[in-house]
Design a protein around this nucleic acid. Structure first.
Lengths: 147, 147
DNA sequence: TATTGTTATACTCTATAACTATA
DNA sequence: TATAGTTATAGAGTATAACAATA
């Protein structure tokens, strides 16, 4: 019962999926706000960080890391490359694939964005106790096994 | 480090938002599969259950419960009404508003869908211990306060 | 045959501005 | 003036099929 309105979402409140959705909507909106001043979205930020951590990464492997289908990576890398943040080289060992790397500008933006994202995480999740945090991590780990 | 591939998503694994996104993608896909045979989507199912729990609900209040903007509720209720699952009556006390209710067919579908969704939840979240479940509930509650 | 990047395409979800009719 | 429902529209994320080049 949402006390103020007298409305009931009780049949859904027992569903973890329903509550995760509500949380995710809020988190996503706050993350979008956090990244907007840097002209990044959730997915372009994620790609930036993953390419930095995996020099020479291919788009197919990037898609795997991002949990996104391969076709959706194309526009993301297009945008990052157009802005001079990522450079696409042909992989010498496999001429079908690209070897993706960050440019110096890409590394600088990655650093600035990561600082902003860490502030965002602290703002949202800072109130969680260490025990709560561990419990969530464990639960998400368990969940991943079933998906 | 994802051992099999040698790829690293470590810079993101410390971000709760990143892990929640991955979990949510999987949960959503499984939920969509669960509801597809019943010709329901996440949002139409949610609306169905909330209308059942709140007879005479208006679309604006439904939007509030669903964490969706009012315009997005229109197509959802349109679809449910067209299929004879929900009936729209004018609210006698406020002729701007609708009073939404389930039809008998809507109630039957709600019941069948809820059974399917409960099996889906049990399949995905059944492995969580009671303590983990409580920790997640508490953490999501805390999180909601900050959003 | 299988895989990489690609194009085209579509669906779902979410969001905003502006209109109408009531209040 | 404010609210309920609506229209139109847009953006973001996610998904599938099919094709050319390469393996």
């Amino acid at each position: 019962m949402t006390a103020a309105t007298g409305l009931s979402d009780s049949p859904l409140r027992s569903l973890l999926g329903y509550r995760l959705r509500r949380a995710w909507i809020g988190i996503r909106a706050d993350l979008a706000e956090t990244l907007r001043p840097l002209d990044l979205r959730m997915l372009t930020y994620t790609a930036l960080v993953l390419i930095e951590a995996n020099p020479g990464l291919s788009q197919a492997r990037l898609a795997g890391l991002m949990t996104v289908e391969r076709p959706n990576v194309v526009a993301i890398v297009d945008e990052l490359a157009r802005r001079g943040l990522v450079c696409r080289r042909r992989d010498p060992g496999d001429r079908r694939a690209y070897a993706l790397d960050l440019t110096p500008r890409g590394r600088a933006l990655s650093r600035a964005a990561t600082e902003a994202v860490e502030r965002h995480e602290a703002r949202l999740f800072g109130a969680l106790s260490a025990a709560e945090r561990r419990a969530i991590d464990a639960a998400l780990e368990r969940l991943s096994e079933r998906l």
